[in-house]
């Protein structure tokens, strides 16, 4: 084998699919950040060596097939009920690491009660909250997190707060909840934010391993298909619009 650069051999893999992912091709659209989120979670599961004792809870939305992608045991939950299902798994099998993977329709609309009460009970689980301000799988309806003025199929003139209220701020809402041990909002639009997102995801799972309480990471995500933007425009729209409404940061850190 010949030396190429910086002491690496040709046969040495510099990048590989994380062991936390299966070899199944994902069904996500070009420019959607679900793939990045999956990869980061899978890398964290591998690095923390918890793949073999993790149960992923897939919910309803574009990520409904998450049970095919994560290389872990998995349970598919009814729309919005992921945190209740995760509660049952964790209480009946406390040695298991449990996480839900939920979009904004699933978590902030139909499943708001389940996530708040799981947090309230301090369930030792981790929630991955994908916020792309729209219902994706059902073709682009308004979500609770849709921005003011954002056009969706059910807000054709743009979201009007008089008609539909203001965007729902999940992290801000949960930040006063005493059961929450780790809470952060991240995005994945450039290498810096991707690295930061991974740090928070890792911390969220570590929180559960430490038995410290409920952990949630909100990932501000893209939906080029239903934002009617190119992938690059979608990234820019996150920077210009989404992050103004949803400031990034760590809201709660039990050991920070």
């Amino acid at each position: 084998m010949s030396e190429t650069r910086a002491g690496h051999t040709e046969a040495e893999a510099l990048y590989h699919r994380p062991a936390g992912l299966t070899d199944v091709q994902m069904r996500y659209c070009p420019g959607c950040t679900h793939g990045t989120a999956h990869k980061l979670i899978a890398e964290v599961l591998e690095e923390l060596d918890i793949i073999e004792r993790t149960v992923a809870v897939a919910t309803v939305g574009c990520s409904v097939y998450a049970y095919e992608y994560f290389n872990t045991d998995a349970v598919q939950a009814a729309h919005g009920r992921g945190p209740a299902v995760a509660t049952g798994i964790k209480r009946a099998s406390p040695e298991t690491i449990v996480f839900t993977y939920q979009g904004d329709g699933d978590l902030a609309a139909i499943g708001l009660s389940e996530v708040i009460h799981s947090a309230q009970r301090g369930e030792k689980m981790t929630v991955m909250f994908i916020n792309n301000a729209v219902f994706g799988m059902t073709r682009g309806q308004m979500a609770p997190t849709t921005l003011v003025g954002q056009k969706t199929t059910t807000t054709p003139l743009g979201r009007d707060p008089e008609m539909s209220g203001m965007p729902m701020m999940i992290c801000e809402m949960l930040s006063t909840n005493p059961g929450v041990a780790y809470l952060a909002r991240e995005t994945m639009i450039d290498p810096k934010t991707v690295r930061s997102a991974k740090r928070s995801i890792r911390k969220a799972f570590q929180t559960q391993i430490d038995g410290a309480g409920f952990s949630l990471v909100e990932l501000i995500s893209t939906c080029p298909a239903w934002w009617h933007k190119t992938p690059l425009e979608a990234m820019q729209w996150v920077r210009d619009e989404m992050l103004v409404q949803y400031p990034l940061g760590v809201f709660v850190d039990y050991d920070g």
Binding site: V55, V57, V75, A77, A78, R81, A84, V85, A86, T87, G88, I89, K90, R91, A92, S93, T96, S113, E114, H117, R121
Partner: peptide, 25 residues
């Protein structure tokens, strides 16, 4: 373990999760 759920929706879905582990629930 006894868990008081926030609704019957949550109750039955907690049951779903616990049942998935093979437990009598």
């Amino acid at each position: 373990v006894f868990v008081q759920a926030e609704s019957e929706l949550a109750s039955i879905n907690m049951v779903y999760g616990a049942a998935a582990t093979g437990a009598y629930v």
